[in-house]
Every structure is written in C-alpha cells, then in structure tokens.
Design a binder for these strands. Structure first.
Length: 300
DNA sequence: GCCCAGGGAATCG
DNA sequence: CGATTCCATGGG
C-alpha cells in the first residue's frame, strides 16, 4: 500500500475532519464488521450496509468520538484534525502497514493446495485491517465475548461504558480498571454480564493493582510470555487471550481458534493447519479465514 | 469426564 | 410460532 496522506483538513458544521488519500485498500466496512471491535456501529443511513460504495461507522476509541466514512477511495474522519490523525487514528487504523506484502506472505506460506484456500480468503477479505485497539478495553471486551454473540456483547459493553465510563463528547469512554473496581461485581452483574461479572471484576482488580502490567504484556519478548500473564486472570483462556493479544496488544502472531475456525479447519484444511507457518502474520491469516467462513460464504 | 452458569441471537421443526 | 442450539471458561 502506498503511504497514506492528508488530502484536506477542515471544519464542517463545527466538526473538524480530515480526508485521507492513499488508503483505497482500507475497508471501513470489513474492518468494523469482522468481529474485532465492539464499539463502532454503522450510522443510520448505512445500517443495512454500504450504499453506492459509501459506508460510515461511528464510535468512541481512545476517549474520542469519531465518524469514519469511506467513499470513492477516500477515507474521511469526522471528529479528527490532522494532528489527531497522526497521533491516534493513523496507528489505530493500521494505515501505515503494508498489507500487500502481508497478503503475499500469507498466501504463499502453505503448500500449493492450501495456498489456494488462502488466496480465496485474502481475496474476499481484501481491505480488512487488524485495528490497534487499547489493551484494557480489548482484554475486557473479549472476556465479555466468551460464550456470547456479537449483538449482545455490544449491548453489554455499551452499558458498561454508559454506567462506568467517563463522559466524552459524543458518548462515553471505556471504563478504566479503577472505575470497574469501584463499581464492584454486583453492579457489573446487574448489566446482564452473567457469570462473566466475576471475571471482569477479577481482571479489573489485577490490572488496577498493578499485579498485571498491561504495558509489560504488550512489550513481552514472546507470545507465550504475554499469554502466560493474561491466563492468570479468571475467565481468560487461550481463545480470549489470543483475541486480546491480537487486537489490543499488537501480537500479530496470535491465532485465536473459536468454533468458526474449527469449521474452517474441517472444511478447508482436512490435512491439518499449522498456523505457525504464517509466523508473525498468523493473526491476519486467521482474520481472512474467519471472515471468509463467517461473512463471505459462497463468495470468491 | 460432565454439567452448569445468564442471556439473547440464530437456527430449527 | 415455540423449541433447541450455540457460545469459552472455570468450578463443583
């Protein structure tokens, strides 16, 4: 992907915006519809999906409300000026990563027959980026995601934010670990979190106390070392840890295996699938396969 | 090894 | 329509 650049910076109806060029291959629709992020929703006009190639989502990340619009190969970020784009959204949206090169690697990592599957997965998934979400929000969100479905995960997270997150312009920030410790397990349970309430409270307590240092997890030398830290938290098993590490801690080699990935293995890799062959790009390979199986059945 | 925990979406009959 | 299934983890 060519380097992205700012086409235009301005203010519309009092809202700052930046228009970004060079991001033609970035798909807002796929990146926010693929189950990695629970705090963005399509705007009303786009509730049923893209219209004439245009699409918009809105939500809060890094304590900032933004609206992301894609249209005619241009990405517009409302709620951001150029400085915020460079310091926050450029990294959050992974716009500087060379996905052409990543695609080349994941579609050639396996033997010829299995690479044919990867080529199809990469094709239908073209435009997906692994977002760089915030560590605590991601960890907490994927604890909630266990044994759960996406609409309900989103409802629970919204309720947590509205009840315990700091009010910001346009919505609420994700609650800090400290805020959730103060809220307590009972009030977390009251938001329909079910048996996960204790898990959320345990994670919040360990992070707030410093017993688990999320910055150290992100900086860990190896995947195993980072995973070991997160597995100490009640309610965090290998799947939840892998999702948190992939989407929130920059561990691109993480390969979350859920029920969808088990179907992928059965259907497309009867001889077995060794995700370590994808090396540092296993997470992308997983997203492509997941997206193909879950959202793009019959395409490609 | 097996069942259950809360709940709502998805799928089935 | 109602009934059943699904879901990731830990504890009894």
């Amino acid at each position: 992907m060519d380097k992205v650049y700012i086409i235009e910076e301005g203010v519309l109806d009092g809202v700052p915006y930046v228009k970004i060029g060079g991001a033609e291959s970035f798909s807002v629709f796929k990146s926010f519809d693929c189950g990695q992020c629970f705090r963005f929703d399509p705007t009303e006009e786009f509730a049923d999906g893209p219209v004439n190639g245009a699409y918009e989502v809105e939500g809060v990340a890094h304590g900032r409300y933004v609206r992301l619009r894609e249209e005619g190969g241009v990405l517009t970020i409302f709620g951001s000026d150029a400085a915020d784009f460079d310091s926050i959204w450029r990294g959050y949206l992974a716009l500087d990563e060379d996905y052409d090169e990543i695609d080349r690697l994941v579609t050639t990592a396996l033997d010829e027959a299995d690479s044919a599957v990867m080529l199809r997965a990469a094709e239908v998934s073209h435009g997906i980026r692994i977002l760089h979400q915030e560590p605590w929000e991601t960890l907490c969100s994927f604890i909630i995601s266990q044994n759960n479905n996406i609409p309900r995960i989103k409802k629970i997270i919204s309720a947590l934010c509205e009840n315990f997150g700091e009010k910001v312009e346009g919505g609420h920030a994700f609650p800090t670990p400290e805020a959730l410790v103060e809220a307590g397990e009972e009030r977390i349970f009251a938001l329909k979190t079910g048996f996960r309430a204790g898990y959320i409270a345990d994670a919040a307590r360990r992070v707030a106390s410093g017993e688990i240092d999320l910055a150290a997890v992100a900086a860990a030398e190896t995947y195993e070392e980072a995973e070991r830290e997160l597995l100490q938290i009640r309610g965090v098993g290998p799947k939840v840890a892998a999702c948190a590490l992939l989407f929130g801690f920059g561990k691109s080699e993480a390969f979350p295996v859920d029920t969808w990935m088990k179907k992928v293995a059965e259907r497309h890799f009867p001889r077995g699938l060794d995700h370590k062959r994808f090396g540092k790009h296993a997470g992308i390979a997983q997203q492509y396969l997941f997206y193909m199986e879950r959202y793009a059945r019959g395409e490609g």
